[in-house]
Design a protein around this nucleic acid. Structure first.
Length: 259
DNA sequence: CGCATTTGACCGGCGC
DNA sequence: GCGCCGGTCAAATGCG
């Protein structure tokens, strides 16, 4: 019994879409895991800070910002992820056997160093943007400890030039797909119009609540957030799955102590 | 030969 | 002051 070619095409299309969704799902799961780890470390750091009552800058994955409470006019500690306002973190799925720290993001990078860090057995590679001589953007690429199928790229700074479209394809290539970004975006790869990755701003930055953020950056960030949220909200199954995953992730860790 | 990559040395920040 | 650690430098090396 022959299957009509139109149906066959449709099935292939659905299969391709399913595969893409599975990759995105894997990236999201990884992101949740990383978030959970950071949350756990934050909780521990917060617990320590609460006990000591001494506001200090924590080294490592967390830090605390000192802000003034508008109601009580007292200084309060606001925990946030390590990522600075002008940095972003991107996960890229790659072959775990591939030891080249190549993340095709539309820019040309020049490697200037490699280091093995304490908390991750995989070496971290340091790159500078080489598309423009004065471009200040730097990138750190390290295989993710939670899932070695993913490279974790951390971008710092803002490009002062345009992306080269001939380099910019990329993120849907067989060796690099399903990227998920966390934290401060309107810079670096997130400016690349060619990418179709999921970008979720999960930066818990307190810059806005403290009133010291850049308005343009804030507006760009908000419009991007709105766009992403609207796109994702159209898919009810995704929303349900994400909500369930977040709920599961949060309940797996103890709540920070309340004072 | 020119450019990119590798890799050990060096530097600065931080905690003790 | 000392040691640890992440980040950067720069000479050596490789490659087209």
């Amino acid at each position: 019994m022959d299957v009509p070619s139109s149906v066959k095409d449709k099935v292939e299309g659905v299969e391709a879409e399913l595969e893409q969704l599975q990759k995105e799902n894997a990236a999201l799961r990884l992101m949740l895991q990383v978030m959970s780890n950071k949350y756990k470390m934050l909780s521990e750091a917060y617990f320590r800070e609460s006990n000591s009552q001494v506001p200090t800058i924590c080294r490592g994955l967390t830090r605390f910002d000192l802000c003034e409470d508008q109601h009580s006019h007292k200084n309060i500690l606001i925990p946030q992820l390590q990522l600075a306002a002008n940095s972003s973190q991107v996960f890229v799925e790659t072959d775990p056997r591939d030891e080249s720290h190549i993340v095709k993001d539309g820019f040309q990078w020049r490697k200037y160093g490699q280091k093995v860090t304490k908390h991750n057995p995989f070496p971290r590679a340091y790159f500078r943007c080489s598309m423009a001589p004065a471009c200040p953007v730097k990138k750190k690429v390290q295989r993710c400890m939670e899932d070695k199928n993913f490279l974790m790229a951390t971008y710092e700074g803002r490009h002062n030039h345009e992306v080269n479209p001939s380099i910019g394809q990329s993120l849907s290539s067989p060796t690099s797909s399903a990227t998920t970004s966390i934290s401060g975006f309107p810079n670096s790869v997130l400016d690349n119009p060619l990418r179709s990755a999921i970008a979720l701003d999960l930066n818990l930055s307190s810059e806005n609540s403290c009133g010291n953020g850049n308005d343009d950056d804030y507006n760009n960030k908000r419009s991007m957030e709105d766009h992403v949220a609207a796109s994702l909200a159209k898919d009810p199954s995704f929303t349900l799955a994400l909500a369930a995953a977040v709920a599961r992730s949060i309940t797996e860790h103890p709540k920070p102590p309340t004072n």
